[in-house]
Amino acid sequence: MGEPVRVVFTTGFSRRYTGGVREFEIEARNLRHVIREMDVMFPGLANTLEEETTVAIDGELYEIDFTQPVKEGAEIFFIPKIEGG
């Protein structure tokens, strides 16, 4: 494994689900790995991430799709889903 990815949550989300910790460094090559690793640290978090968040990988927004690749050293923000008109 190379450089880990940096996973970041909003303040409100981290208060609710990760004990206030906003940033994590984990080894992952796709979103499935990211979500699984987070679920290992915080059991049950995977469902919340899948259902409640949109993910920004190096600024690019994606809906949660396990197969989405993440590059070494990528910055991964989980943000609340957005509704349009």
Partner: peptide, 13 residues
């Protein structure tokens, strides 16, 4: 591109 946003990620476009 690269400007931070209030919601966390940097602008990518």
């Amino acid at each position: 591109i690269g400007t931070p946003t209030i919601f966390g990620p940097k602008h990518a476009h």
